[in-house]
């Protein structure tokens, strides 16, 4: 069953197509935007700009380090460069250039990492960005956005242009279902509650948002009321939303299409540990690289489906109940 169907979400277009369209709109609206390609424009869909604004589109060839350096120079001359490549190639090949030139220099460069996660599928693990959020998350000053559908992709690009400073935006090849209605509120650093619930909270980003909504529908049938939060901004993290989830629902499952180490889950866990500790579970990639296969097969094989989220939700609810009982017992023991 396609992602989003259980939740009744409308089918969406591949996120990269949405990115290409959104980038074109951004270029029409903001003349200072230029697009820098690492010779993957046909794959990332940045090529929409090449056709419409050839003078504002530069293919720097297969040389990511130079690609980022050139963007830094352009940014310091008042342009707003969007640097577009696969997230794995961009972050792994040009990490030091991003570190010095973009993050440390607080340059107004917008990095777009396409093909994030495992759902690029058959091209295999060499092309997949499963460490990208950990890598970019390791760089102070960089705002990190993880859109989950066409609408949020446009909002992410628009806000990247109107906010000064380094940005990383994650794109994907997967056809993500529509989560947001036109006109919905979507702001940097403000996570959105998509479904209310009191029993537990599922915090998700990217493709896992639609999976979480599917899980919400499954859980509802069993009488479990889950809150679903789209944590689309990894930095600045919406601490208040996380604390609220911990305090009000007392159990949290975090789902991401990324390694469990250093991604969204570990960042959320730190906030929970510091504020209102509660049972947590995590859906993501264990310490492993994946295979080449069809995207949906991979999601299933590596436990990134709504059923996996449901299973973790049940686990976390049990842990919550055990903890509550434990508290009741211990508080009933008379103090000597």
């Amino acid at each position: 069953m396609p992602v989003g169907e259980k939740a009744g979400l409308p089918r969406g277009k591949p996120l990269r197509d949405a990115f290409g369209e959104a980038l074109l709109r951004i270029c029409e609206q903001y003349p200072q935007v230029v697009v820098l390609d690492g010779d993957l424009g046909n794959s990332t869909k940045a090529e929409t700009v090449r056709k419409a604004f050839p003078e504002r589109f530069l293919n720097l060839g297969i040389a990511e380090s130079n690609l980022v350096g050139v963007a830094v120079g352009l940014a310091f001359c008042g342009f707003i460069p969007f640097v577009v490549s696969f997230s794995s190639f961009l972050l792994c090949n040009a990490y030091d250039q991003i570190r010095l030139g973009v993050a440390m220099s607080r340059a107004n460069v917008k990095l777009v990492g396409s093909h994030g996660g495992i759902t690029l599928g058959k091209d295999g693990p060499t092309q997949m960005g499963i460490e990208d959020l950990a890598l970019v998350g390791g760089l102070p000053t960089c705002t990190i956005l993880i859109p989950c559908d066409a609408y949020s992709m446009y909002k992410a690009l628009e806000q990247a242009v109107t906010h000064e400073g380094p940005f990383f935006i994650r794109s994907s090849r997967y056809a993500m279902p529509r989560v947001y209605e036109e006109g919905s509120s979507w702001e940097i650093g403000k996570a959105n509650i998509l479904r209310e619930g009191k029993d537990l909270t599922i915090i998700a980003c990217g493709l896992m948002v639609a999976c979480a909504l599917d899980a919400w529908a499954e859980l509802q049938k069993e009488g479990i009321e889950a809150r679903v939060v789209d944590l689309h901004t990894l930095r600045p993290l919406d601490r208040a939303m996380i604390v609220k989830a911990a305090r009000e629902t007392g159990a949290i499952v975090v789902a991401e299409e990324h390694l469990l180490h250093g991604g969204v889950g570990s960042n959320v866990a730190r906030v929970v540990a510091e504020s209102y500790p509660c049972p947590m579970r995590f859906v993501g990639l264990e310490d492993t690289y994946t295979d080449s296969a069809d995207a949906d097969e991979l999601l299933e094989a590596y436990h990134l489906t709504s059923s996996d989220i449901v299973a973790k939700c049940k686990e976390v609810l049990e842990a919550k109940n055990v903890a509550r009982k434990g508290n009741t017992i211990s508080s009933s023991i008379p103090r000597s």
Partner: peptide, 22 residues
């Protein structure tokens, strides 16, 4: 420019040079 990790300055310079053209 921020430099010190070697090899990066010419790319940044190229960005400035291209900006002049644009």
């Amino acid at each position: 420019a921020t430099t010190g990790s070697l090899g990066q300055g010419l790319s940044v310079g190229l960005g400035h040079a291209l900006a002049a053209r644009l």
